[in-house]
Design a protein around this nucleic acid. Structure first.
Lengths: 355, 355
DNA sequence: TTGAAAGCGGTACCAC
DNA sequence: GTGGTACCGCTTTCAA
């Protein structure tokens, strides 16, 4: 008949006070090494694994876990190389403070929000969620330290981001400079509603993924400034940011008449999909159609052809977010750092238009 | 001067009891819808985000998080495709019960064990750790539901695994049947001590990664049964299970005289490294040297040449582990399921030996 | 349907 | 160096 062992059990057994046992675990300097050893040894015998983490959490207010809110479910996070790199960077940074990552999905459902509300974490790191995601609101309501990566922009919350507009302008300008006028755009989801297809001006303006708003807007302005009629530029939104869906979207674009001579894909996964679609349709890249991506994800430099893209520091961004969390947890106040710079990497998927 | 809002604050404010407010959140059926709405509305006004997860955790004994113990640090987990698939499967399964994943690394350090000990989770899922990993012992000491994937084998803990011996035999037999006699082995770490190079019998026998022990042993027996002298079979251990390190190990093997006509790599990452090393050394695969891998990880079917390998259900394994955790958490008792079957997938990286 | 009260297991301050 | 003792904020019988 083994009773549950607690500090009190142990204290009674040893004839010391509960506080002393607690100190044996948390403040070795508060008692003699000798007594401490005796306590620890006896604890071991009794199968006491140390102070209950839940109780400790309640009392101390710290859990040792940082909540990580993931877009579109955990599966997605693990399959998108840019998300994996982010997690990698974040984890490596948090590990040095002994913090674990508590992964939760934000998929727009009430349930998610409820889970977030009930999650015992010391801080939240949020990446790439829609402006109106309920799980974000739930995290915010906990009033704990918080950092956002990319989106959504939240007042008073440090945001780690890149210069999206810059990147989009650079990609667009490259195509313009090469002489392209029939340009099409392949966009990541503008809202998490599974929509796939041509986007109209309204949907574009009210995109809840703010990064997409920013990038699209930058493309529009650059094209307009060059005299290209934005109204005539086809923008296809992909329901999921992966290669397969990107290929699907690219099919639609390449099927149009006149066919575009260049595609701006707003992520590399979509760009890779476009490369595949072009290949399958017998459209030569960059001979018949140029493709430019965004991210410089792993693997795109060895794609066929190697992808021209906008490079951003994927892993480093995660680390920066981690650093900020750590600082916040130390009680420091942190302002949003300047957006990280991006750079256009020109490879072989872009060239002058045909003829 | 905003005081911290708690159930009690709210209860006083509304002139009801604390229990009623609690019920408003946890047992809607225990009070009138009307009162409940009033409570929730007022909570919102006061900026009360709901019952404190830590306190709830202490009282109810549940946290809603499953601890996931990862080999070699989180970065590694995110960069190994087989690990990512496992996490994906696991996450998808746990998500349906609203459980989050709390990731922690087990890297052999005392610190890790300490963190694990202090982690507030409802259960642990452990994957591919050495027999003597302290973090495993710490998790075990918490006396919570637990599942192991692959290794270590722990008495009384359900283990989800594959038929490693079968797989290793199949790979070895294939090479024997093709006529190979000069066979070499490229192994994943046998112990987490960073050792890289030729393995002697002692190290082999005392490997703390039991899966490696099993696979090596199966290879040995198969070769011995075919009259190949195991003492003359070079086994190179790679310090890290990734392509780069695999290439390093393969260099060492291919440099030997006589050069092996076949390499059994005990993971696909190592096999991919071997392919690269062979390519860089001008060794034709499979013309001069065959390579067989293990896992059928994503991407190996499109390697150059497509890799012959032992296929195992990578994602499904994670799901199975998740199912078991869920059952355990429901209070059901679960026995170790039969090992999942593997199958040899013959592609183009294997062929008869030269001459 | 609502309220009172007994813990859950620890932590940390303060006195001895 | 050690012990006494208020809480931490909530859940959950049980009785009203």
């Amino acid at each position: 008949m083994s009773e549950r062992v607690t500090l009190l059990t142990l204290a009674r057994d040893l004839g010391v006070s509960r506080a002393t046992v607690s100190n044996a675990y948390n403040r070795p300097d508060q008692l003699s090494a000798d007594l401490r050893d005796r306590i620890l040894a006896r604890a071991d015998q009794l199968g006491f694994a140390g102070p209950d983490p839940r109780a400790r959490g309640l009392r101390s207010g710290r859990t040792g876990a940082v909540g990580v809110l993931i877009d579109q479910g955990l599966s997605y996070a693990f399959s998108d190389p840019t998300a994996v790199l982010y997690l990698d960077g974040l984890a490596s940074e948090l590990q040095s403070d002994g913090l674990g990552l508590l992964l939760h999905a934000g998929t727009g459902s009430k349930t998610d929000a409820e889970l977030v509300r009930a999650a015992a974490v010391d801080a939240w790191v949020i990446r790439s969620l829609p402006d109106d995601e309920p799980a974000v609101a739930a995290a915010l309501a906990q009033q704990r330290p918080m950092v956002v990566l990319d989106q959504p922009e939240l007042p008073g919350v440090p945001l780690v981001g890149i210069d999206d507009a810059d990147g989009a302008v650079a990609a667009t300008q490259l195509l313009l400079d090469l002489g392209h006028r029939d340009i099409a755009v392949l966009a990541m989801p503008l809202r998490p509603d599974g929509f796939q297809g041509l986007v109209d001006a309204v949907r574009e303006r009210y995109a809840t993924y703010s990064v997409m708003r920013t990038r699209l807007c930058a493309v529009e302005q650059t094209l307009s400034a060059a005299g290209v009629d934005w109204g005539a530029v086809p923008v296809v939104e992909c329901a999921v940011n992966d290669m397969d869906t990107g290929a699907l979207g690219a099919y639609e674009l390449l099927d149009r008449t006149p066919a575009p001579t260049a595609i701006i894909a707003l992520s590399d996964q979509l760009a890779l999909g476009a490369l595949r679609a072009a290949h399958e349709m017998g459209v030569c890249v960059p001979g018949a159609c140029s493709v430019v991506g965004f991210d410089d994800a792993p693997g795109v430099s060895t794609a066929l052809p190697p992808l021209t893209t906008v490079a951003q520091p994927l892993r480093e961004r995660g680390q920066v977010a981690g650093e900020i969390v750590r600082a916040l947890l130390r009680g420091e106040s942190v302002a949003t750092p300047p957006r990280l710079p991006v750079s256009l990497v020109v490879r072989d998927s872009t060239g002058p238009p045909p003829r």
